[in-house]
């Protein structure tokens, strides 16, 4: 496995196949936690963290448990179990050992348990036949793509509040239109690739 291979995975996860704008995974926290820039950053970092870890653990679970017993069809159920347990464990661990990080991530950490981007990355890793390192890279960069998307979106929404938009579009409707336009702009990245 080459560095360029990893780079192309990273580029794909962050820009070309951005989890939110082109795969439409994790739209719930993307719309729910993007009213303010600082909370959006918190959510983005928490998702990146959990996606990286979940990729690693689910890859191990899949390789050494599910494949061994021929239970690949149980991936979705097993991964949900793994992710839920993992997030709970991380929460407890952080509360004890890194209280500052715990307070910084705050409410977002438990919310991620049900984030479909995390489950999505776990399933996509298996579908794409990634090895362990590729999976972790894909997980982390996918999280970074989420971070990029939610931070950009939160910044736009903060400014949208002051914009003079039709009364019936105020609030959520204009946010959805904004998200759609941002997804369109991310379409511009399609076809981008690393040569080598």
């Amino acid at each position: 496995m080459s560095i360029t291979g990893l780079l192309s995975i990273a580029l794909g996860a962050i820009l070309v196949n951005n989890f939110i704008f082109s795969q439409f995974l994790g739209c719930c926290p993307f719309l729910g936690v993007s009213k303010k820039l600082d909370t959006a950053v918190g959510m983005g970092i928490a998702v990146t963290f959990v996606m990286g870890l979940a990729s690693a653990i689910t890859w191990i679970v899949n390789e050494f448990i599910l494949v061994k017993f021929g239970l690949e069809f149980m991936q979705t159920v097993a991964f949900i179990l793994v992710i839920a347990a993992l997030v709970q464990f991380i929460e407890m661990f952080l509360q004890k050992s890194m209280p500052s990080l715990y307070t910084a991530l705050g409410i977002y950490l438990p919310l991620i348990t049900t984030n479909c981007a995390v489950l999505g990355v776990a399933l996509l890793n298996i579908q794409s036949n990634y090895n362990f390192i590729e999976s972790v890279v894909y997980g982390i960069t996918g999280g970074l793509g989420f971070l990029l998307a939610i931070v950009l979106f939160a910044a736009v929404r903060e400014r949208n509040v002051f914009a003079d938009c039709p009364k019936c579009f105020e609030g959520f409707p204009i946010a959805l239109i904004t998200a759609g336009l941002m997804a369109l702009s991310f379409m511009g990245f399609s076809g981008l690739s690393v040569w080598g």
Binding site: F69, M74, L81
Partner: peptide, 13 residues
């Protein structure tokens, strides 16, 4: 397998 996995995770938690 899933039962054991769940049990183990529960125990760890």
């Amino acid at each position: 397998v899933l039962g054991i996995m769940g049990g183990v995770f529960g125990l760890i938690l």
